[in-house]
Simulated assay, not measured.
Amino acid sequence: MKKKIIITISVLVLLPLLAIFCSNNIITNSAKGKTFYNVDAIPYNKVGVVLGTTSKLVNGSPNPYYVHRINATVALYNAKKIDFVLVSGDNGTKYYNEPDTFKRELVKQGIPEDKIFLDYAGFRTLDSMVRAHVIFELNKVTVISQKFHNERAIYIAEKKGLTTVGFNAKDLKGKAGLKVQTREYLARVKVFLDLLLNTEPKFYGEKITIE
């Protein structure tokens, strides 16, 4: 009886760890050679999709992930590696609107307003990638976020028929990024559950042409 309990506990512990290990390796390896830090090295795409995040931390200070994604988007646009920006994020309530917040800052940084399109239904990375392909009718994009996020976005996008490269915004190292990195491991496992269950975006809607 005791031996069976030990085996059961071992399986319950090892299976989630194995799922995390396999999911992480598959997604990391699939994105090799498809993410870039150097703006000169990344290929041109008509549209860059910047993935939304909150602009402020709980304590009210600027969110570094947001700041770095803004900087990466501006650098890519100024280098003429993209012509348009699609901001995809959460617009869950009237008090929380990632796309509008990103747009205001991007315009302030010099990107013309008519070059910025907003996807208000990018509630998850899956939603953002699928909607970029289906709603905004894009076949190739440059996704803009931190490397770990870009890798996951690229994997999802390519499974959904969207060819993608990633431009890596500056990341946080050490303790500052530990919480986000830990959450990323779980998000990668969920990618495979979503694919298995053929999970769809929360909303679709009318098609929008970026031009």
Rank of each mutant, 00 (worst) to 15 (best):
K2T: 14
K2W: 13
V13Q: 01
F21Y: 06
N24Y: 00
N25V: 01
N25S: 11
I26R: 00
T28R: 00
N29G: 03
A31Y: 05
A31F: 06
T35W: 03
T35S: 13
N38F: 06
V39A: 12
D40N: 15
A41P: 08
Y44L: 04
N45A: 12
N45S: 15
V47W: 08
G48D: 14
V49C: 12
V50T: 15
L51W: 04
L57E: 11
V58R: 14
V58I: 12
G60P: 09
S61M: 10
Y65V: 09
Y65M: 04
Y65P: 05
H68W: 10
I70P: 09
I70Q: 07
A72K: 13
T73D: 13
Y77D: 03
A79S: 15
K81G: 14
F84D: 10
V85S: 09
S88Y: 07
S88Q: 12
T93M: 05
N97L: 13
D100S: 14
T101W: 09
K103D: 10
R104D: 13
E105A: 05
K108R: 13
Q109L: 06
P112T: 13
E113C: 05
A121M: 03
G122I: 04
G122Q: 09
F123Q: 04
T125D: 02
T125V: 06
S128V: 03
A132K: 10
V134P: 00
I135N: 07
E137N: 14
L138Y: 03
L138Q: 15
L138T: 04
S145H: 03
H149N: 10
H149K: 12
N150M: 03
I154C: 06
A157F: 03
A157S: 08
K160G: 03
K170P: 00
D171C: 05
L172A: 10
K175V: 02
K190L: 05
F192R: 01
D194M: 09
Y204F: 15
K207T: 14
I208C: 11
